[in-house]
């Protein structure tokens, strides 16, 4: 069964048609990368998966729950779906450890000792063991993003969404964040959906690449096939623009 399934999904912002007839199945444990020019609806699409954006038509099933229905409980959904944002969105009034431990404590009611152990282990995994008591504004962008990833992982989600996680980072910070993401893709059975402009990452890690333009899915292919032999003209054009410089 697909972990995430879009069926004829439509999304509007007023008159603007942001997502056009989206049909997509994402299998459990796979890493899917969404690419395309800016304004193509990649971020909008990924944000519908955890209900940060509502859809106007169609069905969207995440982990067995149709979240297009009015009554569906987003809070339960979000326990299973983590998200990493372009601008990190760490809690500015909490320390790094508190950022990681807060949601497990109040949403999952995780035991405090276990919560701390998990948080410390995650901080170690992202290479920031010494930053537990720092506040977010004392960290670099790359460090903040790694904390944000640790915060999402602490909830032990089934699905992890990444919305342009490296776009706001200085070039020398990007590598560390991508390393952590590769580690997750390799070592866990989490389903990952990643919006990114990092073609190298897409090539190495993605099981499937989705190419979007103007709110529609233009091409879905296995990563290797997409990069070596794109089918659609629009995708070829895009690849030649991003790869040849």
């Amino acid at each position: 069964m697909a972990m995430i399934e879009f069926k004829n999904v439509e999304k509007y912002y007023g008159d603007f048609h942001a997502l056009k007839n989206i049909n997509l199945e994402i299998e459990e444990g796979k890493t899917v990368v969404l690419i395309g020019p800016s304004g193509s609806g990649k971020s909008t699409l990924i944000r519908t998966i955890n209900g940060l954006e509502q859809i106007q038509a169609g069905d969207l099933t995440v982990y067995g729950e149709n979240i297009a229905k009015k009554k569906s409980d987003m809070n339960i959904l979000r326990k299973n779906v983590g998200m990493v944002f372009q601008h990190f969105n760490l809690y500015a009034n909490k320390t790094v450890l508190e950022n990681i431990m807060l949601a497990p404590r109040i949403v999952l009611k995780r035991d405090e000792k276990e919560n701390r152990e998990i948080a410390e282990k995650l901080l170690e995994m992202v290479g920031l063991s010494d930053k537990g008591n720092s506040y977010p504004d004392m960290l670099s962008g790359g460090q903040e993003q790694r904390v944000a990833i640790a915060r999402s992982l602490a909830m032990k989600p089934k699905v992890l969404l990444f919305d342009e996680p490296t776009s706001a980072l200085d070039p020398e910070m990007i590598g560390d964040v991508l390393e952590v993401m590769k580690k997750i893709a390799r070592d866990s059975d989490m389903t990952m959906v990643v919006v990114t402009h990092e073609m190298g990452f897409a090539k190495q890690v993605a099981d499937q690449v989705i190419f979007m333009a103007e709110g529609a899915i233009i091409e879905k292919s296995p990563a290797k096939e997409f990069f070596e032999n794109p089918k659609e003209e629009r995708a070829k054009q895009f690849l030649s623009q991003v790869l040849n410089h």
């Binding site: 809070n75 979000r78 779906v81 983590g82 998200m83 944002f85 969105n89 809690y91 949403v107 909830m155």
Partner: peptide, 22 residues
């Protein structure tokens, strides 16, 4: 910053928890 509420909601907190704690 609007991202604070989004981050908290995506993290699983309810609107009221996010409002009160963050």
């Amino acid at each position: 910053d609007k991202g604070q509420m989004e981050g908290a909601r995506a993290n699983g907190l309810t609107y009221w928890q996010a409002m009160r704690i963050i």
